[in-house]
Structure formats: structure tokens, C-alpha cells
């Protein structure tokens, strides 16, 4: 049986699948950026929307993935394919080391701490601390993906790689939401004391959310660096983190369609109104404020109650 949401989802997937056939290269690039940023926003949503942790440093993990690929490829000559696993694992490891000591902090304190980490990250990149990051200019000349002598170098290739990454991400999030792990995050989010009293190890599941979110953001970062064949610090600063944070809240915490809508509004709509120059940002600022006032749970809020059908037979 098919409900309305899955029909919309399938229509959207089909549309996005054929999107490259209808558009010019500029729009194709916008499409790719949408896909990559959607993955980052979804991974932010694991931490913020599910576990309910006020994390405002997500661009750090996105950037770690991007720089891992860039450094391994530009400085050490590794093929892009070989950088994918490290681009996921490095952010996961850093997330663990960074967050484990602060995970017990209350929401507002943790928020400030994550911003602090993001600022330090940018400082490290700009000061070229290990002579690897290329300083404020970043790194250039990142290779394309090559498999068995075949180059995936066109914009269309990039688009479909990002498309597959988004597909994998949505698959993971759907599994998460239907598992003990996703539910534990929700319980912690809704009432930490009640969750603990039901035997949920709050620290473990918050860390789980962070590490999973960091890994997915890292994969998106790797793709981002290849798309632009360059990385530089400002793409991963606190302003970007605020963007990802905002996308989740505007779109709808823990809502897959909500976060996709949020990404569309924040990254694709501005491209559509290019002729309005900077005035368009004024519109978005106002849109953000209005959403929070009129729809505080987001444009497409999460709906709970996704339980097996056999439990619904008594429902009137």
C-alpha cells in the first residue's frame, strides 16, 4: 500500500533522476549543490532533529571530509576513490574525540562549545598548521573520480554521484528511524530523564548521532571538494554551520521532506532570484523569521506514529 508521502517521494526521485536531461550546465551545478547540501543538512538533522543536540558546528565535519580528500589527493597523490573511506572516517573520529568530553553539557553550553570548535577548525586551516591545508587560499587542482581508466569528470557525472550519495543517505536515515537507535534519540530529545529511566544510555546515543552525522557530512564534503576541484576555509565557517542549523529548523526537525524543502529554500531559491542581487537575502531573512513565528515546528513537520500495520487494527 502506498501513501501520499511515498508517492510524492517517488515523483521527486524520478524528477531528480531525469533533471540533468533538461537543464544547462549552470543549473546542473545548482542541482549538484542542492544534492550535496541536502546530504549535509540531513546529517545535521540526525544530531539536531533526532538526538535534539544543539550543534552549531556541522560545517566542521563537512569541511573535514572535503579537506581529507583534498589533502590526500593534492599532497599525497592518492586517487579520489581511495580518499572516500578516510573522508568518512576522519570526521567520525574527530567527532568522537571532540564531542565525548562535552556531550554531557546542557543545550546552550554545548551550542557555544560546538561553535568554538568550528572557529578553531577555520583557524587551523587558515594558518596552514601542518603545512597541508594551503592556508587561506586552500587547495586547488583536486582530481576527478577515475575508475578503471574511465573518468567521471563531467558535470553530469558529478550530479549522479551526488544523487547516489543522497539516495544512500536517505536509505540510512530511514533505517535509523525504524531502529532502536533512532527511537532512542527521539526519546532522549523529548524527555531525557524519562529516556534514562527506560534504560537508555543518553551519552552513548548522543555520541552515536554525532559520529553518524559527522561521517555522512564527511562523505558530502569529499564530493563537494571534487565538484569544485578546490577547497578553501570560508566554505566551512560558522556562517555555513548556522545555515545547516537553520535549514533543519525551517524545514522541519527530523522530517526528511522538511529538510529537503529547507535545503531547497536556502540554496536553490537564491539561485532562481539571482537578478535581485543581495536583496534576495533580505527576503530569506524575513522568510526564516516568519517560519519560526507561523510554523515553529517547520514547514513540513515530522509526523510520529509510524508503527507496523498490525498494531493499527484497533485504531478507530
Amino acid at each position: 500500500m502506498m501513501n501520499k508521502t511515498s508517492l510524492i517521494a517517488i515523483a521527486l526521485l524520478v524528477f531528480m533522476g531525469f533533471f540533468p536531461l533538461f537543464v544547462d550546465s549552470a543549473w546542473l551545478a545548482v542541482g549538484t549543490t542542492f544534492l550535496v547540501f541536502a546530504v549535509v543538512a540531513l546529517s545535521q538533522d540526525i544530531i539536531l532533529g533526532r538526538a535534539g543536540v544543539f550543534h552549531m558546528g556541522h560545517a566542521l565535519f563537512f569541511g573535514l571530509g572535503a579537506y581529507t580528500t583534498a589533502i590526500l589527493n593534492v599532497n599525497f597523490g592518492l586517487p579520489i576513490l581511495a580518499t572516500w573511506v578516510p573522508a568518512v572516517l576522519v570526521p567520525m573520529l574527530v567527532a568522537f574525540i571532540m564531542v565525548a568530553p562535552i556531550i554531557h553539557l546542557r543545550g546552550d553550553y554545548l551550542l557555544v562549545a560546538t561553535i568554538g570548535f568550528n572557529i578553531i577548525f577555520i583557524q587551523v586551516l587558515e594558518n596552514d598548521v601542518f603545512g597541508l591545508t594551503g592556508g587561506p587560499n586552500g587547495l586547488f587542482g583536486i582530481d576527478v573520480v577515475r575508475v578503471l581508466g574511465y573518468d567521471f569528470s563531467s558535470q553530469t557525472h558529478m550530479y549522479y554521484m551526488a544523487f547516489i550519495l543522497l539516495g544512500i543517505t536517505l536509505f540510512i536515515m530511514r533505517n535509523l528511524d525504524k531502529s532502536k537507535f533512532g527511537r532512542a534519540m527521539f526519546y532522549i530529545h523529548k524527555d531525557e530523564i524519562a529516556a534514562q529511566s527506560m534504560g537508555i544510555n543518553v551519552r552513548y546515543f548522543k555520541l552515536y548521532a554525532f559520529i553518524l552525522g559527522a561521517g555522512i557530512a564527511g562523505a558530502a564534503g569529499s564530493m563537494f571538494s571534487v565538484q569544485y576541484s578546490a577547497v578553501s576555509p570560508e566554505a566551512f565557517n560558522v556562517t555555513q554551520s548556522i545555515m545547516f542549523f537553520t535549514i533543519v529548523l525551517v524545514g522541519g526537525s527530523a522530517s526528511l521532506p522538511g529538510v529537503l524543502i529547507g535545503t531547497f529554500i536556502m540554496f536553490v531559491l537564491p539561485e532562481m532570484f539571482r537578478e535581485f542581487e543581495t536583496a534576495r537575502y533580505l527576503v530569506f531573512g524575513i522568510a526564516m523569521i516568519l517560519t519560526m513565528i507561523l510554523r515553529p515546528r517547520g514547514i513540513w513537520p515530522v509526523r510520529f506514529g509510524n508503527i507496523p500495520d498490525f498494531l493499527k487494527k484497533g485504531v478507530k
Partner: peptide, 19 residues
């Protein structure tokens, strides 16, 4: 009472199955 008030009754009870 400390329920996960936005979540459904079934999901609330499911939290007891966690351990």
C-alpha cells in the same frame, strides 16, 4: 507524568523495549 508527548502511544511503550 513524563511521556514522550508528541510521539504515539505505541512508540512510547516501545521505549520500554529498549533494554
Amino acid at each position: 507524568i513524563r511521556l514522550f508527548s508528541e510521539m504515539s502511544v505505541a512508540e512510547n511503550i516501545m521505549s520500554g523495549r529498549h533494554i
